[in-house]
Design a protein around this nucleic acid. Structure first.
Lengths: 130, 130
DNA sequence: TAACGCTGTGTAATAATATAACATTTATAA
DNA sequence: TTATAAATGTTATATTATTACACAGCGTTA
């Protein structure tokens, strides 16, 4: 078990906000929203975001510079992430596919590289936008 | 066949530079390097980069905001990219793994999403940095 | 208790990445 | 030739993220 009780005030405020949104949020939109709670500077937001990413509570969507809560309770460390992104409406969903995860986890290149993490982003059009 | 002869002057200058580097380059470091060739503004660089990405000559490493040439002559459109990234020395290699590509290409989620592109980034430590 | 290391805080300034808006030019196609 | 799509050059600005510094809180341990 991870000790999630140890989140600090700022970290909790920001995690709460992200968890309440089903879509990814941008750092500066988070900043705007938490100003009423006394968080005033970008750095305060980025520090909390970095920590939350580190402990696997949220993920960063690299191609969009946004942050989304991890719904998978098992996913305690951000080692392996797969997202589906609609290029029209920007809707993002985290994918948990056992078979795919297996393949990615087991992947070996021919360079002797030691992997500890991966991030996969699928792009396309969702049902609504097709 | 793609008509690669149709690259414009700016596009050629920037593609040349990226191709000569075996490691990914940042937009503003490219800008610095091409100033002597009369390219003066960020937008000129970004326009060329975007075009080159679009036609598959280069790829963007999303987690690093850098651009790397595609060594695979078949890779004419940037639909499917896999990179290995060393978190210590930041060395980046493009991976072409047939089996992996098959799995990714064939991936279907349960949302009825229509994919046209994916990007996968593996992180770890390269031989030198282990 | 005191000294230390570690993590987090608050604040100001600034760096790094990327785009908007506009006028103009060049290339391609009808 | 005209028109139309794509690229250019330029200025300004938006967006994303970090550096630097002073300090507070907490657990360890000497």
């Amino acid at each position: 078990m991870q000790k999630q009780e140890t989140l600090t005030k700022n970290q909790k405020i920001i995690l709460d906000l992200i968890e309440k949104s089903d879509q990814p949020l941008k750092a500066y939109s988070i900043l705007f929203d938490v100003k009423k709670k006394g968080i005033n500077a970008p750095l305060q937001v980025y520090r909390a975001l970095n920590k939350l990413v580190k402990i696997g509570k949220i993920h960063k969507i690299e191609s969009r510079n946004t942050f989304i809560a991890c719904k998978n309770s098992k996913c305690q460390i951000a080692k392996a992430t797969v997202f589906s992104i609609c290029e029209s409406c920007e809707d993002v969903t985290e994918i948990h596919d056992h078979k795919l995860s297996e393949h990615l986890r087991d992947f070996k290149d021919n360079k002797g590289m030691k992997y500890n993490k991966y991030n996969l982003e699928f792009f396309g059009l969702c049902k609504k936008c097709v």
